[in-house]
Design a protein around this nucleic acid. Sequence first.
DNA 1: TCATAACTGTGTTATATAACAATGTTATAT
DNA 2: ATATAACATTGTTATATAACACAGTTATGA
Lengths: 233, 233
Amino acid sequence: MIKKLSIEALTQEALGEMLPLLDSNEKRIITENFHIQTFKKNEMIYNEGEKAELLMCLIKGKVKIFKAGIGGRSQIMRLIRPVQYFGYRAYFAGEDYITAASAFENATIGFLPMPVVDELIKKNNRLACFFIKELATDLGMSDTRTVNLTQKHIRGRLAESLLMLKDNYGLEEDGITLSIYMAREDLANLSNMTTSNAIRTLSCFAAEKIVVVDGRKIQLVDEAKLRKISRFG
Amino acid sequence: MIKKLSIEALTQEALGEMLPLLDSNEKRIITENFHIQTFKKNEMIYNEGEKAELLMCLIKGKVKIFKAGIGGRSQIMRLIRPVQYFGYRAYFAGEDYITAASAFENATIGFLPMPVVDELIKKNNRLACFFIKELATDLGMSDTRTVNLTQKHIRGRLAESLLMLKDNYGLEEDGITLSIYMAREDLANLSNMTTSNAIRTLSCFAAEKIVVVDGRKIQLVDEAKLRKISRFG
DNA sequence: TCATAACTGTGTTATATAACAATGTTATAT
DNA sequence: ATATAACATTGTTATATAACACAGTTATGA
């Protein structure tokens, strides 16, 4: 579907929520500076420590933003879905990247140089407000996440992650299967636990009929219970 | 010093970093809508769940932003110093407060209704960019904090906190005494550990001649070592 | 189609840290 | 000056979870 579209159409697609905020001249500026790139599953999009110079827009696929922790342990900070923007925070803060991003599955990403974005927001206040809202929302989620990851027990953290995956990527047509298929290791990195414990705890949930697990396919059978465990489990 | 200033002067003071970004008309609008309030030590400034309607500016004193966790355990998210803005994130995100704020010591705070801020931002792009930068910086710190609190061991977390306190509030004239005097419980809430462990670990640091502790007065004797422990201890 | 690697699953052990308890110390208020 | 409460300290025990090890399973690619 998307892959059949022209570059122009892809650019339009990539404007996403920003589209209604732009006039035709601004759209022209964007189109002229925009480029699109595809990434294979697990391919790095940017690395910790690199200079941040591009606004990125996920057009297709899934992307994970993560941070290397102590001893090679990585922590998934957030997951991006189409059409969402990412990669711009560091530039706005005047920093290099403090996170890394990789394609969780094959992905199509649009890029726009941040200086261009900067020019645009200096003239278009609604666009500036868009970024303010994005950042404010992300900051709230990050703060909530900090407390969840530090204070909840392992069951609560996993339950929380499963619910977050549902909110973020939704379910298959059957209405209970998570639309994202992740390795146990990623589930662990998302929930701040070891892979072994992610596996064990997920098995527990399955034994308690809260989820049905078939390989990487996870069905949320008893969402109410999951929510209860997430609140305090 | 500050307490002798007029309301007008206090307002000026409260504009802080925003001041150079404003024209005289904007300053007038702010002055007309601005009000100032003092808070006693430990007094609540806003609570979790309340509607967020005011931009706050700490003119004098210290403020802690915290979040109630599981079982009454509270997590200090960040500490505010003069002149810094806070309390605006939730409004921008269209949410109610997800954190609470209280005066860590007697504080003077300026308030400006967020709708006024919104109006100003819509017309003054440099002001909008100011908030973008603030939010982007805070988001970066929050992400870093998430990994620090979840992955570092107890010594590393405490060391990290001590260094953060130094960065945030600086040192007394002697060049080694932290300018903030906090209860062990607060140090614990900052570092995601129990009060007992904050006390124990701080005693350890003292025994290792990394710090000198005298009640709530903490001297950073060996900052290099503290930094090393923070990186991995 | 076989070899290799990546992933999943399970059991065991070690350990960091919370939980609890009890006591000492220092502020605060009357 | 004394009572009361808040805070600091120390020790002990319990426990959640990491660390490790090994085996089985499923992809991957030559």
